[in-house]
């Protein structure tokens, strides 16, 4: 491809992106996760009224459920939450335990769960729920690779989320990422408790969250801890500081990094 065509393509892509992206002023404010460096990378936090995907690494359903419950808790604040899942996911990963969620920091009183028989009805239910602006967030949990969850389906979810201002969170377990219109995509696995002897109590829930896609910024990988009491993520408490010293003040480097899209 010659240079002129590349340039034209790039400018066209730019103008499409401008048309598609809601103007900065109209964008609702981002919600900080609480983890400083992740928030910095996300330019302030997660964008509400968009689609965010969380993939469980391998079959680690527990950690991914915790991470997405954390995101839902951050985003929905005190508004009701609809959690849509497949029957099969219930059997494979266990049902949601309300006592567990309550201890995790989510209020079971604000939760309505929907069990859909198959992927199609789960998708449709989620799209329906996304149209209801009284909700804080909608979690859609799909087990395995689903043919129905293609680019068109994720575009529908994104549009529904944009129209109503409700955030769509997609939890995928035992699935491989495929192209989608998600704002961010995370791969989550469990992280170790801080070092200590085997009989000492474990700490707060801890995730190794890898941001593999970020539509409007760079990606990264962090160990995050969930503070059940404050209902927010944070840096892992008992880990020692990173071995390499943090840069004292290098603003140009951060800008340069932000300009690149390391992955899509």
């Amino acid at each position: 491809m010659n240079g002129a065509r590349t340039g034209t393509l790039a400018s066209l892509r730019g103008s499409i992106a401008r048309i598609e992206a809601p103007s900065e002023a109209a964008m609702p404010s981002r919600l900080a996760l609480g983890h400083t460096s992740a928030d910095a990378m996300l330019r302030g936090g997660l964008v509400p009224a968009a689609l965010h995907e969380v993939f469980a690494a391998g079959h680690q359903g527990g950690a991914a459920t915790g991470f997405i419950a954390g995101l839902a808790g951050r985003i929905s604040a005190r508004k009701p939450l609809v959690w849509v899942r497949q029957d099969f996911s219930d059997r494979e990963n266990g049902a949601l335990s309300m006592h567990g969620l309550a201890e995790f920091g989510l209020d079971p009183r604000l939760l309505v769960t929907v069990r859909a028989a198959d992927v199609d009805s789960a998708l449709r239910t989620a799209a329906d729920a996304l149209a209801c602006d009284a909700l804080g967030a909608v979690v859609l949990e799909i087990w395995g690779d689903a043919r129905q969850l293609d680019l068109v389906a994720s575009r529908k979810l994104t549009l529904a989320a944009q129209a109503s201002g409700v955030t769509a969170l997609l939890l995928r377990i035992a699935a491989t990422p495929i192209p989608s219109t998600a704002e961010t995509r995370w791969i989550v696995r469990a992280a170790h408790s801080p070092p200590g002897n085997a009989a000492s109590a474990w700490g707060a829930p801890r995730f190794e969250a890898e941001l593999v896609r970020n539509r409007h910024g760079p990606v990264g990988r962090w160990i995050m801890e969930w503070k059940c009491d404050e209902c927010q993520f944070s840096e892992p408490s008992a880990y020692p500081q990173p071995v390499a010293a943090a840069p004292a003040h290098r603003p140009h480097q951060a800008q340069a990094r932000a300009g690149h899209r390391l992955a899509s």
Partner: peptide
């Protein structure tokens, strides 16, 4: 929930 304690009950229950 007991403040400051990690959860005592799991998130997913079979």
């Amino acid at each position: 929930r007991v403040a400051g304690e990690p959860p005592l009950r799991p998130l997913r229950l079979f």
